[in-house]
Design a protein around this nucleic acid. Structure first.
Length: 645
RNA sequence: GCCGUUGUAGCUCAGUGGUAGAGCACUUCCUUGGUAAGGAAGAGGUCGUGAGUUCAAUUCUCAUCAACGGCUCCA
């Protein structure tokens, strides 16, 4: 007998060799039908795997993340079975579930290419195979036997996987006619997979290394019911409507032009208003925090980027140099070297520190063509940049002050869905991707970690995401279609101060090198506005909205009064236009609702006679008649307070 | 940069080996209408670009550019 402990602490005895599925059945048939896998002593197991020792059990269904993952991983196997049936000789690499939902499988199809039609027929095949209710059968295998199996098959990919596994930890899974080397776990049988959608075909480098062969990756998603698949597809449609590329065009925010070049957005008048509002916010905030503004050129000589160390570490991301008078000049990809030169322009004392130099700097980065993505990833960017030069003693407070500034901004914009990431170096890439100062790395990373812990700001740590000159706190966000980006960043730099020979005189009349904080709480205009478009679904709060009020006369009899209203608003500093088209009021409302104009003022006979306006709020409808002066003072307050509605 | 897909009017999209169509937007006219589309007429495209095949190419082939979905890389 084995003792099974349930999540609520209840204990029960079962025969040795009992499975999670048996246990579920002992509770109810309904539950047993829903069980996907089970957490046994903290490890996710097949629901059909015999339990031979006392254990704690947590039955996993579709409602648990691990249940979903198991479901999708098994779906990947089902897809592989369909692929193998359709394309004999195909070799598989790995087929994991995705945190964001669904799964993929990487495969080597030789010279064959998959088309969209292939996906449709594969889906059909998968549905047929699912209906066979084939069990996923687990089998342990000695390493030698496994190696022999794949050697005979000529499967170099699975042999590569096996080379990292030890004897005794190798398992195979078989469902229907498909057998795969797999750690598992899997769902009990294919019949649980009721709704299948293969979403896309893509190339993916083997082991994620661009030097390796490119495999074919097929993405898909599955659900236990058709309804859930339909809902998922609907959700994708909705997400596409939020896409900043679509909204940016509809709302006249930015445009791209082939003659200007890829990744070089042109900011239209509406977008420029948003830029100017953001800069106003940044300048106010930075002035409050005792930053000093500077302005620097867009280019610099090669020698500066040799000094900074950017050329060895960053050259691939910079536009190639132009040669003038025997000198090479680079377009700047970052503002820091220019700012360091400003620091160095005059001798500094400890009394000058912390020195905070701020600039909305224009930078150019030669991003690889395939990486460009609307406004989120571009080649010309305007960075909410500043560099803080401080002593080691001042560092913690300065770094924390930057974090506080982030949080203050995020509150203004109502940004809640983000992850703070402590981005660390990768010791294996010291000297290549990261300056070769192992002790300084550890020391600085600890410094940053402590600031975060003391500030009680939750964060995750990721190795290999640091800047070449030091660790950083990145704010990670997700675009409407689920792509991850760094929105804002707060970086420590222990390297460039020394490289630029930046010094200050200490109280005891010695010299020391400042620590440098690189920070961009509002990231770049490009990415930030791209993000805001999606965050607000185009419905900017009044203070940010390119057009704040549209005056809608019922007919042109009221045009003169409409113009008086508009001119009063304009004099109060409100961005306003009159809809003077020869259209009915319903049409005017519809068009301005679609353009996300926050306030519409309907003007007719009543309003004209009483010096009033009928206020309509975008997305909310008619708010009723108000005195014009009352409306003006309300909206001005909303603008000044940067009310986030 | 790599793999795949796409490229027709300002936007969304039909379509064809014999020099192109719809809806919306736009212009003009009628209409002067009270909270999400009033009516009519009109204008607008050398079908991404370049070459090839053909009597004939927007349609077939190749190249190239760009966008999109991924991979790699990053604010």
């Amino acid at each position: 007998m084995v003792n099974i402990t349930f999540p609520d602490g209840a204990k029960k005895e079962f025969d040795k060799g009992v499975t999670a599925l048996d246990i579920a059945k002992s509770i109810s048939e309904g539950l047993a039908r829903k069980v996907i896998a089970a957490n046994i002593n903290g490890e996710v197991w097949d629901a059909t795997r015999p339990i031979n020792e006392d254990a704690t059990i947590n039955l996993l269904t579709w409602n648990e993340p691990d249940g979903k993952k198991t479901f999708w991983h098994s779906s990947a196997h089902l897809m592989a079975e369909a692929v193998e049936a359709s394309f004999p000789g195909v070799k598989f690499w790995v087929g994991p579930p995705l945190d964001s939902g669904g799964f993929y499988y990487d495969m080597d199809l030789g010279d064959r290419k998959l088309s969209e039609e292939d996906l449709v027929s594969l889906e059909k095949k998968m549905n047929e195979l699912a209906k066979t209710n084939s069990a996923y059968i687990r089998k342990e295998m000695p390493k030698a036997e496994a190696v022999q199996y794949f050697t005979e098959k000529g499967d170099e990919y699975k042999l590569d996987l096996l080379s990292n596994l030890n004897d005794g930890e190798i398992t195979f899974y078989t469902q229907g006619r498909f057998t795969d080397l797999c750690r598992g776990p899997h769902i009990p049988n294919t019949g649980l997979i009721k709704a299948i959608k293969l979403t896309s075909i893509a190339g993916a480098y083997w082991k994620g290394d661009e030097k390796n062969k490119m495999l074919t990756r097929v993405y898909g998603i599955t659900f236990p019911t058709q309804k859930e698949l339909d809902e998922y597809l609907l959700m994708l449609e909705e997400a596409k409507k939020r896409d900043h590329r679509k909204l940016g065009k509809e709302l006249g925010i930015f445009t791209m032009d082939d003659d200007v070049g890829p990744g070089l957005p042109l900011w239209l008048p509406n977008g420029t208003i948003i830029i100017e509002e953001l800069e106003k916010l940044a300048k106010e905030t930075e002035e409050d925090a005792d930053y000093k503004r500077v302005v620097t050129p867009h280019i610099a000589k090669e020698s500066m980027y040799i000094t900074s160390g950017h050329l060895p570490y960053y050259q691939d991301s910079m536009y190639p140099p132009m040669e003038l008078e025997g000198q090479k000049y680079y377009l700047k990809a970052m503002n820091c070297p220019h700012h360091h030169k400003i620091f160095a322009a005059e001798p500094k004392s400890y009394k000058d520190l912390p020195l905070r130099l701020a600039e909305y700097g224009t930078c150019y980065r030669y991003e690889q063509s395939g990486e460009l993505f609307g406004l989120m990833r571009v080649r010309c960017l305007h960075m909410n940049d500043a560099h803080i030069y401080c002593t080691k003693e001042q560092f913690a407070q300065e770094f924390k002050a930057v974090n506080d500034m982030y949080l203050k901004y995020f509150k203004i914009f109502g940004i809640e869905k983000y992850v703070m990431r402590l981005s660390l170096h990768d010791p294996e890439k010291l000297g290549q991707k990261y300056v070769n100062e192992p002790e300084l790395w550890i020391e600085t990373e600890e410094l940053v970690r402590n600031v975060m812990i003391e500030a009680k700001i939750p964060f995750v740590e990721v190795k290999g995401e640091g800047a070449f000159y030091g660790p950083k706190i990145d704010v990670q966000i997700w675009s409407a279609i689920g792509r991850e980006f760094t929105l804002a960043t707060n970086q420590v730099d222990f390297a460039q101060g020394r490289r630029f020979k930046l010094e200050f005189t200490t109280p005891d009349n010695n010299t020391d090198i400042p620590l440098i904080i690189h920070r961009a709480p509002l990231g770049t205009h490009e990415r930030f506005i791209g993000f805001l478009l999606e965050h607000y679904a185009g419905k900017f709060p009044v203070w940010l909205s390119p057009l704040q009020v549209k005056v809608l006369p019922i007919s042109d009899k009221f045009m003169d009064y409409a113009k008086v209203v508009a001119s009063k608003l304009k004099k109060s500093g409100v961005r306003v236009e009159v809809d003077d088209r020869n259209e009915k009021i319903g049409k005017k409302i519809r068009d301005n609702e679609l353009h996300r104009v926050p306030y519409m003022l309907v003007i007719g006979e009543k309003e004209m006679n009483e010096s009033k306006v009928s206020v309509r709020r975008q997305g909310k409808g008619d708010l009723g008649m108000k005195d014009l002066d009352e409306f003006i003072s309300n909206i001005k307050e909303e603008i000044i307070n940067r009310t986030n509605e």
